[in-house]
């Protein structure tokens, strides 16, 4: 569960107002799209959720952690409840597909036995069976994206956050990816997807939070809102 109350975010170095009084709640088990033009503050919201940055003012609670008072030492605990898929994948080039996913488990102290059992399971879920020994450079953009998803999923997070996951994908693959995220959501994980793609958003009847210039301009089930993309 994510709850933001009147959150303002001004980056110290640029004094750009990234968020200007944001209020919303995402409940356990929800599937939510976050849409808005470039620079509207979408990535900032994600960074606030996983504790990469702290808000200038306002209150944020994520999976029971009070983000305005959280100690640095507790951040790993919070992050283990989240699976973040970055726009640029952020895979480790010198590790194979299998290692990229297994590494996320090793980092949180999973046993070798659990890793060997869990990783193939997740790779199968995202449709990467048979690609285990490849390096990221030997995969297509869509396959790399799936590795990032598998890595986000592998530790059974309570919430999956995807920042423009379809940015590099063609429409068919984008739809596939959304269907995968929907499947994951049906298995009980909360999902937050940041996207620009109107058609994709409208293909699902999900809750959409629309943001512009750091303010929420719409929040509801009525499809893509606001700013038009081609």
């Amino acid at each position: 569960m994510v709850q933001m109350n009147d959150v303002r975010m001004v980056y110290d170095n640029t004094s750009a107002v990234a968020l200007d009084g944001v209020d919303f709640t995402i409940n356990e088990g929800e599937f939510v799209f976050l849409v808005g033009p470039s620079g509207s503050g979408k990535t900032t919201i994600i960074k606030l959720i996983n504790g990469e940055v702290a808000p200038t003012s306002g209150a944020i609670s994520v999976n029971g952690f009070d983000m305005t008072a959280i100690r640095r030492r507790r951040l790993p605990k919070l992050r283990r409840t989240l699976g973040v898929i970055f726009q640029d994948f952020r895979l480790i080039d010198k590790m194979t597909v299998y290692e990229n996913v297994a590494f996320a488990m090793r980092v949180v102290g999973a046993s070798g036995r659990d890793i060997r059992a869990r990783v193939p399971q997740v790779l199968e879920l995202v449709g990467l069976e048979g690609r285990e020994k490849r390096f990221p450079a030997e995969l297509s953009g869509g396959e790399q994206q799936r590795v990032a998803i598998a890595r986000a999923l592998v530790n059974n997070p309570r919430m999956i956050i995807a920042d423009e996951p379809t940015g590099n994908l063609d429409p068919v693959r984008s739809l596939d990816l959304m269907l995968l995220l929907e499947k994951i959501n049906e298995l009980g994980t909360t999902v937050l997807v940041v996207t620009h793609e109107k058609e994709l958003v409208n293909a699902f009847s999900k809750r959409v939070i629309a943001i512009d210039s750091g303010r929420i301009i719409n929040d509801g089930m009525d499809g893509y809102y606001g700013y038009e993309t081609e």
Partner: peptide, 15 residues
């Protein structure tokens, strides 16, 4: 980059 990713998936500093 690798270390940043580790932190993002919840690695402790000690690890």
């Amino acid at each position: 980059e690798e270390i940043a990713i580790m932190k993002m998936v919840g690695a402790t500093n000690a690890f």
